[in-house]
Design a binder for these strands. Sequence first.
DNA 1: GCCAACGTTGGC
DNA 2: GCCAACGTTGGC
Length: 154
Amino acid sequence: MEGNYWLFKSEPGSYSYDDLVKDEVAEWDGVRNFQARNFLRDSIKHGDHVLFYHSNAKPTAVIGTALVVREGYPDYTAWQEHSDHPDPKSTADNPIWYMVDIKPLEKFSNHVSLQEIRNNPLLEGMLLLKRGMRLSVQPVTKEEFNIICGMGRS
DNA sequence: GCCAACGTTGGC
DNA sequence: GCCAACGTTGGC
């Protein structure tokens, strides 16, 4: 039984890879999309590997990797009225949104930009490259994960 | 259950 | 800042 691989998007202006390094562990809260929620709640397991991607950045790129250290549990920021992502429909008794905890693993010496990913024929199947793909939590294959790690170390 | 309006994401 | 793509909401 082997772990799975994921890509998490974050806008560096709100939470960057360096923030993760500083915090040592991050609660991946604030995801408010049902498809991404299902991954967080049902599929992402302790020990799974994560590509940490900066969206809305210059350039947009995979910055490094992270490790899942806690499996899906209710995103309590949803029922905190003054959090960044309140959702009054979610309650402690009946949570709608979920999150996981991650810790930093490896910061790449070479940030792997979206352009480099596009230019690599081995990665042409990546979900990230699909038109209109906006999922902030998405699966990647082991092969894609390893190829991007290789590019990040070169 | 359809679909128009609206809001958000995210690359450029 | 623009705008295409997509998700969500709500009237009917």
